[in-house]
Write a protein that binds this DNA or RNA. Structure first.
Length: 516
RNA sequence: CGAAGCGUGGCUCAGUUUGGUAGAGCGCUGCGUUCGGGACGCAGAGGUCGCAGGUUCAAAUCCUGUCGCUUCGACCA
């Protein structure tokens, strides 16, 4: 402890102070009052490393992204380097989501990244929605192009162009395709993972013989997303339908999953659209049905993006950095040897790694101090670490420390595989529970405008309130307090009889919030 | 697109007001001592100061222009 005090004074590597403080509280409760002075200093110095989320959530977010080495900026605004730690998370998301897609009959395809302007222009609402943010290719080599090409902001038009030829008969339906790719939207303001000019995503596009079948697929994929978020990302979501004001350009209905971040702001985490036959009519996608009549197909599209990584950061992270749910943690277990130069310590660490081979496990055998390695593991969000040193080896045990609770658990070396598995499972489960508790605590109800205003002035979170269905009320609420309707949830509650804004008879209960 | 801030070794920044031999800490390399919550010593390497003009005997510093990044708003995944 004296040692650390000394370090506090002389070092400007700061996170250790926070870590030290927490360690004291854990190991011996009665010592907590003696360190008030140290705590002040620790709090002050910590700010330089990872900004406390209570002080400045946006800065905390950026700090975590940098400290966990997920991304790097490049010389182009809004275009990021996904570093190994960041890309590995995306790969795990991709793999697990893709498995769930395939289980519902989805096939993967790949379409070009360029869209001729004339093709983009075919569906009026669609082009109006995206025109302000498309990037254009005007030259091929040194020659100007006859027709400029848009870099896809989304691929509805390309899929339509493809389906137009691929679909002739009812026997060619349904078409259930998905592609993993990147798209470009020239955003003014960019933020790592949440809003970049080029981003990675998947976009599913389907064509069906009937409206019912299209609607069924739209909802089915929304459910896939919701289950994925909860089971894999440990993020609880609200499933619902977007109002007309918020729906996708060109869609007849947009469904969404909405998640609540730690700072109480909402994040649209995935959308599923039903296009009806609007695109089919604009693009002429017709088929001959069993009754020998020509019909238009009914289409859907659905997408999720690397924004999900931003959601994970903002739902689970804390002031020591990233906290990853085990299922998407590129490294689930970090084995940290103590006094690794002592005979047999490293060998034991490698042996543990072998035995934990069922998990994604690494040994930190760098020559950094153990304290450094602990902080590093925490900033990177690695779910559990295994501390192993001479004392442990002698006692035939090791210490497992959980990232989310920082609980230290002594485990006999004989049962490390089972224990590690149990702890990871428990952590995955409890992270979802904690996120759900947080959302419940930050979900409010308003029956009248006064309460509604007060809630958004004083609290941060979702507010459930009734709505008449008129866009005028949405506009007024947005104008007045920068709050938007997040969705009309599938699970409706009758909070009141009248619209929170205008007082006319209410049609739907709506989740309102400030969004990312 | 509006507002603010910032461009100086890999990183964070000082130096710019008042022009005069490019600095610090961290990181990096080597050797040694350490190791249960960001250890320490010694020795090293590394920068045409965002870019382009201009003023001057002399520019990181003054002038003009330009490019870029970050944050906050409006718009959007």
């Amino acid at each position: 402890m004296q040692d650390c005090q000394g370090k506090l004074m002389t070092s400007n590597a700061n996170e250790k102070c926070e870590a030290f403080r927490i360690c004291i509280c854990e190991e011996s409760g009665e010592q907590s009052q003696k360190t008030e002075k140290e705590e002040n200093m620790a709090d002050k110095k910590l700010v330089e490393a990872i900004t406390a989320m209570e002080d400045d959530f946006a800065q905390w977010y950026t700090d975590v992204v940098k400290k966990a080495e997920l991304l790097d900026y490049t010389s182009i605004k809004g275009c990021m380097v996904f570093k190994p730690a960041g890309y590995a998370i995306w790969e795990l998301i991709q793999r697990q989501m893709d498995d769930r897609f395939k289980a519902t009959g989805v096939e993967n395809v790949y379409l070009p990244m360029f869209i001729p302007e004339s093709l983009l222009n075919k569906e009026k609402d669609h082009v109006e929605g995206f025109a302000p943010e498309v990037a254009w290719v005007t030259h091929g080599g040194l020659q100007p192009l006859q027709e400029r090409l848009c870099v896809r902001p989304t691929s509805e038009t390309l899929f339509c162009d493809y389906y137009k030829n691929a679909v002739q008969s009812y026997r060619d339906l349904p078409q259930i395709c998905n592609q993993w790719c990147s798209v470009v939207r020239w955003e003014k303001e960019t933020r790592p993972f949440l809003r970049s000019r080029e981003f990675l995503w998947q976009e599913g596009h389907t064509a069906h013989a009937t409206a019912e079948e299209a609607e069924e697929r739209t909802i089915q994929m929304l459910n896939v997303y919701a289950d994925f978020c909860e089971e894999v990302l440990a993020i609880p979501v609200i499933k619902g339908r977007k109002t007309d004001k918020e729906k996708f350009a060109g869609a007849t209905a947009t469904y969404t999953i909405e998640a609540l971040m730690h700072d109480g702001k909402a994040l649209q985490s995935g959308t599923s659209h039903n296009f009806g036959d609007g695109f089919a009519k604009a693009f002429g996608i017709q088929f001959t049905d069993k009754d020998n009549t020509l019909k238009y197909v009914h289409q859907t599209s659905w997408g999720t993006t690397t924004r999900l990584i931003g959601a994970v950061i903002m739902v689970h992270g804390d002031n020591s950095g990233l906290v990853l749910p085990p299922r998407i943690a590129p490294t689930q277990i970090m084995v940290i040897p103590i006094q690794q130069k002592k005979e047999g310590v490293l060998d034991k660490a490698y042996e543990l790694k072998e035995r934990l081979g069922a998990f994604r496990v690494k040994v930190d055998d760098t020559d950094k101090s153990p304290g450094w390695k602990f902080s590093e593991q925490e900033m990177r969000g690695i779910p559990i670490r295994v501390e192993i040193g001479p004392k442990d080896i002698e006692a035939g045990k090791c210490v497992i420390c959980r990232r989310d609770t920082r609980e230290k658990i002594e485990v006999s070396l004989d049962e490390i595989e089972t224990k590690a598995g149990e702890i990871l499972d428990l952590m995955q489960k409890e992270m979802l529970e904690h996120a759900r508790e947080h959302r419940e605590e930050h979900t409010y109800e308003a029956k009248d405008m006064e309460t509604f205003r007060k809630l958004f002035a004083e609290k941060s979170g979702f507010v459930k309130a009734m709505w008449c269905g008129e866009q005028a009320c949405e506009d007024q609420i947005k104008e007045e307090m920068a709050v938007t309707s997040r969705c009309m949830p599938f699970e409706q509650e009758q909070i009141g009889e009248t619209c929170v804004c205008c007082g006319k008879p209410a049609k739907k209960m709506v989740y309102w919030g400030r969004a990312y």
